[in-house]
Nucleic acid binder design. Structure first.
Lengths: 207, 207
DNA sequence: TAGATTGTTAATCGATTAACAATC
DNA sequence: TAGATTGTTAATCGATTAACAATC
């Protein structure tokens, strides 16, 4: 185990390990090895062991890893052994789909507040959760001490929304708008844009 | 310019450059420099120049890059100077949102076929496009010679769907199901799972 | 011309892998 | 015990950056 700051690229793999391990657990498998896990994920066993070694010793020579235990460790490392309330801004088709998505709750997140600036949507409810106007966003997020947000607005609005979110105390933003956000250095941002992924693949396809 | 195979990590940045450049274009800006582009994206200017140098010389000393020209070059490199028909499997909330999304067409993609296995959905139309049963998927994709697909099914179904897609001739899969797919080595796969991104950020947040 | 910026080289930095002693 | 697999070290591999001649 080493004490230097853990590279972000390692942090980025931990959720993938966690997801795979939980799947194995749900299939009733209780023990695995770096070799087996690596084969599932297309990652070398050495890399998995090295990644984990940044945080401690979780395995047993000759046997491998107890999956339940390792899941617990990873959840603790990633800070998802708790439930993070999330603010969702933009309740169009995509925002709606996210609000309905059942996959957050078992993995550390709960959509806690919805915002949109379309008067026709404000006041509507999704799963008991009322859509609130964007101009109330700052206060509402601050009051609830929410630190994680998702942006699902059109690209035009995204930077403005991000600015307001940061001002309201948001520290981590998952941005679905197809635009690079400019935020202070201590704010984490992740991007989801399906076209980026598609274009990355078509490079390799024959015309 | 160098002739060795271009690293995938470089390919992964090209769509991001393209997206930013198109945005600048839409704002009426016609010329930019690696320095300016880098500042927008939080990437070093040297990296941008190095990345582009794998494919040719697109800039002019003292001036920078003509954005319109560079966009054209990048679209050609990425093979998106054409329209790829895409098959979408799984028309739940997320699939619906994707089917409605207007952002594909200007960036090289068009959702061309929809599949689901819910009898209640089959035959329904989204934007003139009929939802077809999954058991017709193989033939339909093969006949239309579609090579790109998106999976938006529950996790349980994703591997089975992926197997069928590969059999039908699909070469690139964008997988929204929260599960690692096992596919032959020559099939490209990209993943979108919001929770993975969220967990990658909560590591850095204070409890 | 003077100023700016490219494309490229070489140096630096960081990440991955191979190998193996330790040990379950 | 014999076989398996860990955690870690050192070597390798690859990506990023700094620097600068070329030149618009």
């Amino acid at each position: 185990m080493d004490r230097s700051p853990v590279p972000d690229i390692v942090i980025g793999r931990l959720p993938i390990y966690l997801r795979a391990l939980k799947r194995l657990l749900s299939e009733g498998i209780e023990v695995t090895s770096s070799r087996e896990l690596g084969r599932w994920l297309g990652i070398s066993s050495a890399q998995i062991r090295k990644d984990l070694s940044h945080f401690g010793e979780f395995g047993k020579q000759g046997t491998g890893y107890h999956i339940g235990k390792l899941c617990g460790e990873l959840e603790q490392i990633l800070n998802v052994n708790r439930e993070w309330p999330v603010a969702l801004v933009g309740v169009g088709d995509l925002g709606r789909a996210l609000a309905h998505y059942g996959g957050f709750s078992h993995r550390g997140f709960r959509i806690a507040q919805l915002f949109d600036n379309d008067p026709a949507k404000i006041g509507q409810k999704i799963n008991e959760l009322e859509i609130m106007p964007v101009n109330k966003m700052g206060n509402s997020i601050e009051e609830a001490r929410i630190r994680v947000a998702m942006i699902a607005t059109p690209a035009d609005a995204a930077q403005e929304v991000a600015d307001a979110l940061v001002k309201a105390g948001i520290r981590a933003i998952l941005n679905y708008a197809p635009i690079a956000l400019i935020v202070p250095g201590d704010i984490r941002v992740q991007y989801i844009d399906p076209v980026i992924h598609l274009q990355r693949m078509t490079y390799y396809l024959e015309k």
